[in-house]
Amino acid sequence: MHSSHMIVELLKLLAASLLLISFAMLSRRRTQRLITLFAWQGSVLFISTLLVAYSAGLTELYFSAALTLLLKVIALPWILHRLIQRLGAQWDSEPLVNIPTTMLVGLGLVIFAFGLAQPISRMATTITRNTIGIALAVIFLAFLMMITRRKAITQVIGFLAMENGLFFAATSATYGMPMVIELGIALDLLVGFFILGIFFFQIREQFDSLDLSNMEALKED
């Protein structure tokens, strides 16, 4: 009993750090820092999944945790690093429009997410039910990041962060999705990521930069 209480508190701490990392991502300019933060987010997710698996005694979740570690902590950040090196974009920084405003909007989203999660938390039976709000907030913040950024790579990082939030929501609401679905999502993520990687090169070849505002010219009048 004591240890389980301890674990719940630990999980809450991890969830809070997840949220903090999301906010940090929202305000970071440098692409390389963003990748590091993404890797951190993945590792926090890995630890929390591991804790949930241990406390709930579910072997499936161990696999999920391993998958998270492999994919989101090691593989994807490594590929991203390689990619920006190849693209020569590691020191790219993008002008962020009005960070305080973005933060305030983010704050509003967090409040909204908590309000939204309340009825779900009441119904859920998991030990992690209090963190559903945070999971939703992470999804929203990642979405917000995609909206405010203009570089293709940061868009992809935002997309991946959103998936992290979804994964966290799944573990905290129902102890994770069935294994088959999770494997499918992981595969989708990897494939989608590769396709986007190809697109990066195509976009750069077309516009000489990864700035997506160039794509406005594609609109037909």
Binding site: T148, Q155, S213, M215, E216, A217, K219
Partner: peptide
């Protein structure tokens, strides 16, 4: 159809 990705998002 503004043409900006951010708007579509």
């Amino acid at each position: 159809q503004g043409g900006r990705l951010a708007i579509y998002l």
